[in-house]
Amino acid sequence: MEIKNIKLSQLPAFFDQLIKSGKVVIAPVMKKSGKVFFERVQSYSQVATDYIQTGFSAKSVVFPKVEVLFSFNKTDDGIDIKDSITDIPETIVWGLRPCDGSAFNYMTEFFLKENPDVYYAARKAKTTLIAISCAKADDACFCTSVGLTPGSTEGSDLLLTTMGEDVYVEVITEKGKAAIDLSASLFSVNEERSKEKYLAKIDTKFSLTEIKERIKTAYDSAEWKNESMGCFGCGACAFSCPTCTCFDIQDEGTQNKGQRLRCWDACGFGQFTKHASGHNPKTNQTQRRRQRLMHKFQYSVENLGIVSCVGCGRCIRVCPAHLNIFENILSVTQ
């Protein structure tokens, strides 16, 4: 891995080069509500710098909340079908946290390993992830419990760690290299050093090894009911989660002209598993929440070898009932 250095004061200049490259640049922006969201920006002045975590993850860059799978048009001699993959722009995500970067690893594995998803593949191929290490954290952060750190490089193309007046730049992939090559003069060569003291301190909430083992028998835990009783069954956790990938496929338009869309869906919604006959295999919120949590900590491990929770803490911050995923997991694996 190549290590570079850039002066903190030069970051805006680097950023402007990214904008000038003509690619779509997505970066955290502070909204009036005080929450920070990824948005397309045009200059560094729009970019939020003082935040712990964005409200939503950057997954929408590769897995949009609504994605047109294809459009169709009835003609006299049949139906024209046109997919939208060619319209996908080159995109740079700036300022995602290391945990989010690692979430892309999971998503890539999930979408591309088996039955590869061409939409995801096209978007991912055109996306560069520039992550920034966490100097701050809050009580909801628990990346250190799922095998990550506030300075993890997994999944990102570039990781920036501010060290005083300097920014320590880890060039992780070719895409990352290409990004700094846009303004090569701003970067100097640097040597590898420890980021430790510049990173936020995050206590581990549990031992992942133990949890992975214990969750195998957690399905029947009586605690699921207690832990899920407070769950309202909204989709806030799933939609803000960087690794939740459930979706719905819906047609819009008329039978003559319209689009087939895939839209985010959430396994916590009451009707998510409901059959057309009215039969619902997952009748209550306990079953639905259990599915979500077991998926993160057991099923994705069994299917793909990856714990699909990155400890970003969004679901905890966003939950209307303030349910806490790591407390829930601890409780059902006791």
């Binding site: 309202f232 909204c234 989709g235 799933a238 839209c263 209307p320």
Partner: peptide, 18 residues
């Protein structure tokens, strides 16, 4: 809005089962 329906979920008056 992302249609997570959290507004509906927390509303005591949104009690319709569907």
């Amino acid at each position: 809005c992302v249609k997570c329906y959290a507004c509906r979920a927390v509303c005591p008056m949104c009690y319709c089962s569907s």
